[in-house]
Amino acid sequence: MSDVKEMDPGAAASLNGLYRRYSGWLGRRLRGRVGADEAADVVQETYLRLAPYLLEDIRHPKALLLRVALNLVRDERRRMALRDRAMQGAIPMWVTAADAPVDRLHLKQVLLTMPPLYRDVFVLSRFDGMTYPEIALAHGISLATVERRMAKAVEHCMAQLDV
């Protein structure tokens, strides 16, 4: 049994017609903002987002297509900016991974179940942004010990998160 839901033939034909009629126009509108390659991807994603809806109820297809596409572009730019800031250390890496309060609570529970030796190294690395050599120096342990404890901490997280 498959989780894939078959699309109603009428809806598929309607989506196909909408795509044939406006995909070129939408791609041209997006190229100036994101470039040709990304524009093609955004056009495809836009039509995928519209697939579940009753397309015959759309009164202004161009407006809807452009709004969905621009929202996709905006969301992707936000994700990229957040990731870039996290990579530069401007925000902690866990903000991107556990943005929702439920995710933060779950992460906290996972950290509390971790043995203290592993948790200390993990927190210093992932939340405080310290490098492995800095952690080794601060705790008076070898770099190999830091690496081993970090590997055990990540292994613990993955086991707790069922990854």
Rank of each mutant, 00 (worst) to 15 (best):
R33I: 07
I91S: 01
N16G: 13
R85S: 09
R67Q: 06
Q109K: 13
L65M: 00
G10Q: 05
V163K: 09
G35P: 02
V42K: 01
V43P: 00
I141V: 15
M7T: 14
A11C: 09
R119G: 05
A63W: 06
A51T: 04
G10P: 01
L111P: 03
L117G: 02
T96Y: 09
S125L: 13
G24T: 04
L48Y: 13
Y22T: 02
R67M: 04
E134V: 10
P61H: 05
V73I: 00
Y53C: 01
V102W: 06
L105G: 07
M87N: 13
R83C: 09
L64M: 13
R104C: 09
A81K: 11
L48S: 13
V95D: 09
G32F: 05
P61A: 05
R85F: 11
L112W: 14
R29Y: 12
D75V: 04
M1S: 11
A86L: 03
A138C: 10
V95Q: 15
M93F: 08
G24I: 01
H106S: 14
V110N: 00
V4C: 12
M158P: 04
L64I: 08
L65Q: 00
A69T: 03
W94K: 12
A11W: 07
A151V: 08
R21C: 04
R79Y: 05
Q44G: 06
C157H: 07
P61T: 07
V73P: 00
P115Q: 06
Y22W: 10
E76C: 00
L124V: 06
V102S: 11
M7A: 14
R83M: 13
R85W: 12
T131L: 06
R67S: 07
M7Y: 10
L105E: 14
R119I: 09
R78K: 03
G89V: 11
L54P: 14
G35E: 06
E38S: 09
A63Y: 06
L124Y: 06
T113Q: 10
P92K: 06
L26M: 10
M1A: 11
R49V: 02
G17C: 01
A90M: 14
L117W: 03
G129F: 04
E45N: 12
V73H: 00
R77C: 09
G10A: 07
L18H: 00
L50P: 01
L48E: 13
S23Q: 04
P61F: 04
A40G: 09
D128F: 10
R83L: 15
G89F: 08
K5D: 10
V146Y: 01
R149G: 00
R29L: 11
L107F: 05
P52Q: 03
R29E: 15
Y19W: 12
S14K: 10
P116L: 10
A36I: 02
E56M: 05
G89D: 11
